[in-house]
Write a protein that binds this DNA or RNA. Structure first.
Length: 426
DNA sequence: TGAAATGTTGGGGCG
DNA sequence: ACGCCCCAACATTTC
């Protein structure tokens, strides 16, 4: 039996400028592309989760596009370890190629699979692909990680040399074998009514002027594409101009929080700054439910939550306002908000979601100070003064059906200040 | 990538 | 012309 190599798709769902795939095609004459719907992940999601749909659709499209070479993606649902044990039995595998995934669960899984493969004489090669600079490439002089964004960014930019997307040299080294591609139904999933929007770079050069106005809908919608790797980060960076530094900074925030999660994995469950551990959250369930449903009586908060519930997306400015409202006005632990966003966001990325929630709560590294409290009315005046965005998402606005504010701003502000001050450890 | 509270300044109304 | 008050506008401090 001829030896083959396997390229394992994970969160890099494209065939252009895909580092590990390119390496596999360069070094091996028989490359089998693989995707595993990991039961440990998907079993925790509803069968019609839009992100599962999005992954499926992209795999389907890639599978169609390599059919001209008589090639296929092997698409399986199962327990990842068991799938690999089975693959080792059915194929004579020389080498497995992957792009690195930096999340705690993925690192643990990959370490386990690598061990299994090595024990069976299979080489496991992993490559940097998802980021420009990975966890140990941007460090302080003393070799420790940065925990403040601005110096991190300065160092990031200092060592950055423009990287162009790689050109793929053809896919003829993919194994020529038609494998039936499973239907969504056969995988045990269902069609979702929510779809990922295509990304849009046409307004990228006016990002810094328009980004704070949610009614303009001028943002790029890149986030889910970066999350699932349907676009390469090198391609995005390569279209930026020197004047696009604000947009560039957002991409650097992404890598900042990735390296924070890598070096401080306890942030998943703990405050980055433990001096906030003593905050007595109220965690009122009725308040939380109203926040989730977009029924707080604060239009900007409610519009954001409804946009999230309906589309799986929320404008960034509004994310800050809704998150701040949950933590400060309602005194609900940021972990509840984080979990809700994780469930709903198409672009859900553990590192960014966690980092930004801890930012909003004031508990994170380089976070907003706790006494910086957004006034949802002032934010509305500043960023949606013509009320276009809020009317778009709250049809009953201005009628009796729209609720009164669940809490008065001034009262909530003072209560938050007192509660945070009281909870401080030093 | 905050907002409120407090302080300062200076123009204008008015006796 | 002067002193006094009011208050908008801006600046600084505080949370």
């Amino acid at each position: 039996m001829d030896k083959i190599s396997i390229f394992w798709f994970r969160r890099d769902l494209r065939i252009e400028d895909n580092t590990a795939l390119n390496e596999a095609l360069l070094r091996s004459k028989k490359v089998l592309p693989l995707f595993i719907f990991d039961e440990q992940i998907v079993n925790g999601l509803p069968p019609d989760d839009p992100r599962i749909n999005y992954i499926y659709d992209n795999l389907y499209t890639i599978n169609q596009s390599i059919k001209s070479n008589n090639s296929s993606i092997l698409c399986i649902k199962g327990n990842t370890v068991n799938v690999w044990k089975e693959l080792i039995r059915s194929y004579s595998i020389e080498c497995v190629y992957v792009n690195k995934d930096y999340e705690p669960y993925a690192r643990m899984r990959d370490a386990e699979i690598e061990k299994l493969l090595l024990a069976n004489g299979v080489e496991f090669l992993s490559f940097k692909d998802q980021v420009i600079h990975e966890e140990n490439e941007v460090l302080k002089e003393n070799g420790t990680p940065y925990t403040v964004f601005t110096p991190y960014k300065n160092k990031w930019l200092k060592i950055y040399k423009s990287i162009l997307p790689t050109v793929t040299h053809g896919y003829q080294n993919l194994i020529q074998k038609i494998i039936p591609f499973p239907s969504l139904d056969e995988l045990g999933f269902k069609k979702s009514s929510i779809n990922v929007k295509e990304y849009n770079l046409s307004q990228i050069h006016s990002y810094s002027e328009n980004r704070d106005f949610p009614d303009l809908d001028s943002t790029s919608y890149l986030s889910p594409h970066l999350r699932f790797g349907t676009v390469s980060i090198r391609m995005i960076i390569s279209v930026l101009k020197p004047s696009d530094q604000v947009f560039m900074s957002e991409l650097i925030w992404r890598e900042f929080f990735m390296q924070i999660l890598f070096h401080f994995p306890n942030v998943v469950t703990q405050n980055f700054k433990s001096k906030y551990d003593g905050i007595r959250w109220l965690n009122n369930e009725v308040d939380f439910e109203k926040w989730c449903q977009g029924k707080t009586g604060y239009p900007l908060v409610d519009a954001g939550m409804r946009q999230l519930n309906k589309t799986g997306y929320m404008h960034n400015r509004v994310r800050m306002v809704t998150a701040g409202f949950l933590c400060k006005h309602l005194l609900i632990d940021w972990r509840f908000g984080e979990a809700y966003f994780a469930k709903k966001l198409l672009d859900f990325e553990l590192s960014s979601n966690n980092g930004n929630w801890q930012w909003a709560a004031g508990t994170g590294c380089d976070a907003a100070p706790y006494f910086r409290i957004f006034n949802p009315i002032e934010q509305l005046k500043k960023f949606d003064k013509n009320e276009i965005y809020i009317k778009r998402w709250i049809p009953e606005l201005g009628t009796d059906a729209y609720p009164d504010p669940i809490i008065e701003h001034k009262y909530a502000r003072n209560r938050a200040l007192e509660t945070y001050k009281m909870g401080l450890n030093n």
